[in-house]
Design a binder for these strands. Structure first.
Lengths: 156, 156
DNA sequence: TATTAATAGTTGCAATTGCAACTATAGTGG
DNA sequence: CCACTATAGTTGCAATTGCAACTATTAATA
């Protein structure tokens, strides 16, 4: 069975390789910069921000852990624990889901809202200066279009 | 000092927000898919692959830990430990750096090369099917161009 | 060259993450 | 209503990561 399908060493073009690597590294280093800046200013990690933001976005500042997890791309066990930590800091309150006996809810507190608000300028600044500012409106739309193509197959 | 600069709540446009979020989520879910697929096939994590690949790329399959770390975007303590684990599995050998008494080297073994080669098709397939295949040549170049703009400010 | 500063790497400890097993509740078909 | 399956969430344990302190060596400089 020698000389079978060459599925074994599919080569990438230079452009393919560097685009993929570039995508990974660019995003990674952007996130790193955000984290670094947040820490430098004494704020908690980005994942905390994400959760607070998702909660603040929704109607009554409350979500089921399950839904929350989907929005922030976290596995359920991580949601459980992140919510615990946030509650310990008084940024979030957990409760029972009214309809569903299994469900737990997390709702953002005043303190949580305040913190998120203070974190935002730091976050926003890093992303603007290292990413958004590199594109004009038209380009940003093109970029968005590209991104959306990737996501299309990425929805769970 | 009320009514000061509105640096506090810089708003993003819809496009800005969804492009940024999209970028983060798209990349994250791509990586996740790769990891998932690797694990499903019984392979080690992507970070192992990255290290093996960087070693295989270079002339004599050997790099200083320091250089290696820069290439795979890992902090030094993580490089140390990843190299240890790889050595324990016989995928890498560590040695002394000839010129510099402080330096340690890592070099890929035959076993390491073999493993990387086996991992590649899995990795390549996920990236092709979920990312590369969404773009034709011209588009990919545009995408690459966009990415490079972000990286421009991102080199340490 | 003695002193000091910088670089490379390692390690202990704490925080985070991932996996797998577990509890509790909901939904479904008989 | 009962058995069975699926879903939501939690938890113990192991692996990984991050931080900070530490050693060893090199580079810089007075």
């Amino acid at each position: 069975m020698k000389g079978n399908k060459s599925s074994n060493d599919a080569k990438w073009t230079e452009t393919e390789a560097s685009t993929w690597i570039g995508l990974v590294q660019a995003q990674q280093s952007l996130i790193e910069k955000v984290e670094e800046e947040l820490k430098k200013k004494g704020f908690p990690a980005l994942s905390w921000y994400d959760v607070l933001w998702e909660l603040e976005r929704v109607e009554n500042g409350m979500l089921r852990l399950n839904d929350l997890g989907k929005r922030v791309l976290l596995d359920k066990y991580n949601v459980t624990r992140l919510a615990q930590r946030l509650e310990e800091e008084g940024l979030v309150e957990r409760g029972q889901c009214p309809n569903d006996g299994r469900g737990r809810t997390a709702s953002i507190t005043q303190k949580g809202r305040k913190l998120r608000k203070k974190m935002w300028p730091v976050y926003e600044r890093v992303v603007r200066e290292n990413f958004l500012c590199k594109f004009n409106k038209k380009e940003l739309k093109e970029f968005k279009n590209f991104i959306e193509r990737i996501q299309a197959s990425g929805l769970s």
